[in-house]
């Protein structure tokens, strides 16, 4: 299998799953390439992300990157969160196989959309 242990861990035990009732921003994005979908809820206070939750229907890479990115933005200020790149996410998870890089786009798109 071409996935790292860390990615598999985030796929099997995803963090930050769920919904936020009083979210300040919600995004629902789908990957035009393969059809994976991610929904992200964020709660912002004083320009900082105080909570984030996600749900996703997609491949293991999509679920793992969605979970990791959601966890990553909690506590960050909005502008820093918006500047997160797909490469950063992929790298943090031990890299993605060449054909799966597009899966990490999903999380970046969702973050930008939810913080718009």
């Amino acid at each position: 299998m071409a996935y790292s242990q860390k990615l598999l861990d985030y796929f099997q035990n995803p963090r930050c799953v769920g919904e936020i009732v009083d979210a300040s921003g919600i995004a629902e994005v789908s990957n035009p390439v393969c059809g994976d979908v991610m929904k992200l809820w964020v709660k912002v206070a004083d320009g900082r992300i105080v909570d984030a939750k996600f749900k996703a229907q997609g491949c293991s890479a999509a679920i793992a990157t969605s979970s990791y990115a959601t966890e990553m933005i909690i506590g960050r200020d909005v502008n820093a969160a918006k500047s997160i790149t797909k490469e950063e996410i992929a790298e943090a998870l031990g890299g993605l196989p060449a054909g799966k890089i597009h899966c990490s786009v999903l999380a970046c798109d969702a973050i930008r959309e939810a913080l718009k």
Binding site: M1, Y3, L8, F11, Q57, G58, C59, S60, I63
Partner: peptide
């Protein structure tokens, strides 16, 4: 329905 094939394959593989 409501599950993606690659994720199922990886889960079964594990």
């Amino acid at each position: 329905d409501f599950a993606e094939g690659e994720g199922l394959v990886i889960s079964l593989d594990l």
